[in-house]
Write a protein that binds this DNA or RNA. Structure first.
Lengths: 158, 158
DNA sequence: CTTAGCGAGTTTGGAAAACAAACCCATGAC
DNA sequence: GTCATGGGTTTGTTTTCCAAACTCGCTAAG
């Protein structure tokens, strides 16, 4: 991973791309915030989970909050930054629903719109551009690397 | 990872969540499709990259195409399914830009809209709901697990 | 007061994966 | 011939993962 293209995707994955980290985020954003819930729902080894949680707390993605003194016990809550990873989870889920679990989704998300909306409908997540409001299509994108030496195909000069 | 909550996020990550896999997707969707480009741009060990590519090809996310006979050489192109992972990459990049590389993004994506649009602008990816068109906010979502025994907090009965 | 149990980890020892560097093999350039 | 290039494979060592067992503080039961 040294001498790699500088990139926010890589940076983000270096933080939350280790095994189980995004599943931790899934659980805590859904409301399962305690250690044993995480172990059960994710199915991760306890020690691995411990190191993941430490890392995510240190990075400010999770907050470790005591929910009981006198046996001192903690829960792990998503920070603002942590909650902002939800779009990543939603796009991953959408892809898996489409390509891996075609037909029987293990989980359905209900979307109730902003104030004024009464009935909920099923969430169908799509990535759009905030500037123009349009659905993002691959062919409409052009990459502009900002770091000298890196082009779209690779390093320029040796 | 056994006895874990059934979930498309986990399923997707089981396929493309191993180290480097999403970076491979980043490269090939940008047009860097050859082995040595991938090694250089990602900075991954060659043998690891070999196994990742095999896995992604087997899963139908990449296609291995010969671009030369007579030294037989291949490139790895994203399939339709592979390209559909771009939303995941975009949301990861947006998060990293915001929370990790505040101010100097290593890469800027230019968005040229559909037919009719002339000037391009910078892409600002947002996840919206295809049903109602609104930006997805965390508080507007309700999770409905479809698999008996799994609630939003964890397994129901033993 | 002894035993039982729970939540939240820590410890332990073995199996699997990652890693860097060296090697290989076919071809094309000099 | 000798070197260089692309696309890997091999080798030996360092990390990481993993399951199971263990610990500690505390509460509830008998």
């Amino acid at each position: 991973m040294k001498d790699a293209r500088p990139c926010s995707i890589a940076d983000t994955l270096a933080l939350v791309g280790e095994k189980y980290s995004l599943l931790v985020l899934r659980e805590v954003t859904m409301g399962a915030t305690r250690f044993d819930q995480l172990v059960r729902n994710i199915g991760a080894p306890r020690d691995v989970l411990t190191t993941r949680l430490k890392r995510l707390v240190d990075a400010g993605v999770l907050e470790k909050v005591a929910y009981s003194e006198k046996p001192r016990r903690f829960e792990y809550r998503p920070s603002r930054a942590g909650l902002e990873l939800e779009p990543v989870l939603l796009t991953l889920m959408a892809w898996g629903d489409r390509h891996l679990n075609d037909g029987d989704r293990p989980m359905v998300l209900e979307h109730v719109g902003g104030p004024g909306h009464t009935g909920g409908h099923e969430l169908v997540p799509v990535v759009t551009c905030a500037e123009c409001g349009e659905k993002v299509r691959h062919d409409d994108l052009t990459a502009h690397p900002q770091v000298p030496g890196w082009t779209v195909t690779g390093p320029a000069v040796a």
